[in-house]
Design a binder for these strands. Sequence first.
DNA 1: GTCTATACTCAGATAGAC
DNA 2: GTCTATCTGAGTATAGAC
Lengths: 182, 182
Amino acid sequence: MSDTRNQLKQLATDQIRRENLAAASFRELGKAAGIKASSVFYHFQSREQLLAELVRDYEADFFAQLAERCHGSDSPKQRLLALLDLFKQSQQQGKQCLCAAYGASSHELSDDSRAAVQQFFSRLENWILEVLNKASLLPLPRETLAKVLLSSLEGALLIDRTNIENQHLDAIRQWINKLVSV
Amino acid sequence: MSDTRNQLKQLATDQIRRENLAAASFRELGKAAGIKASSVFYHFQSREQLLAELVRDYEADFFAQLAERCHGSDSPKQRLLALLDLFKQSQQQGKQCLCAAYGASSHELSDDSRAAVQQFFSRLENWILEVLNKASLLPLPRETLAKVLLSSLEGALLIDRTNIENQHLDAIRQWINKLVSV
DNA sequence: GTCTATACTCAGATAGAC
DNA sequence: GTCTATCTGAGTATAGAC
């Protein structure tokens, strides 16, 4: 895999997460990589193909980071807070979740991209569920709680994009602290 | 206010909520209203001005609908479920929250639009807080819980856009049912 | 294998027609 | 007061140069 190709993917992901789907145009990407927009088509057959590939890379990278942050922390609370910290890091970098950006423009996704986004959310929800399976005294069925937790994390990151105070992820941190005893 | 102007605003809001910010181009709006793209500029000085106006209209409309749905329901639980039903209706119509769509593209907002979006979220959070002030036995400080509830509603609506199963808002319904006793 | 010239469509915006 | 012809630049994509 060529350097240029990887560089283009990195640039595209950054643009989408900092701005939105439309911000990752072939023209912009080419300019940042020092080639013409039309040259980007050599590396990716189409825009749709690039977008689908970005989601799969994002998923792999996200869960690799999550695993690393969880290394050595066994307790449910520590793991949920590690996940929250990953979202917090995104927020501090001014980046939204890639899959949230895709979801907001879901009409223009190919079936391939849509499936990849669905899989990311599904895998993350399952990750949360597995963590909750080791926790006790929960106020809700674990499947339900996993859905609510995932929703609140994605929502908080989105809401805080227009709000400099950035308090929503912190509220979720307090919730997790109360929710899981250990 | 002319009919054409109102029609254009209606079309723009629908496009943004069904698709995304970019889908409300002057060209598309003009075509749908039977005039040229350039004619839309007679009704709105600029795209930014239109976008800012849409948010303010959305806020007014949203809270009017919310008030109507809460008519006659005094209990905190009934009111929170009325809010959830409003989100559920959006989901069933294939529409996202207008302010979520704006948030996902926050980089391209004018200060005016951004402030309007912030105000929408802030007002909704305060509405939730006032409802919670009448509830008892809550597991978290009310300010925190209001932030988590708002985040989860926005996140659920977003996630379910790529997911035909649409289970996330339903999970929040279960949560509200357990959370508030009456 | 890597990149560009070029084409075509669509974006926002202005100046001016009726 | 209402609308359009037209400008300029950005978007994806193809055919072909090196």
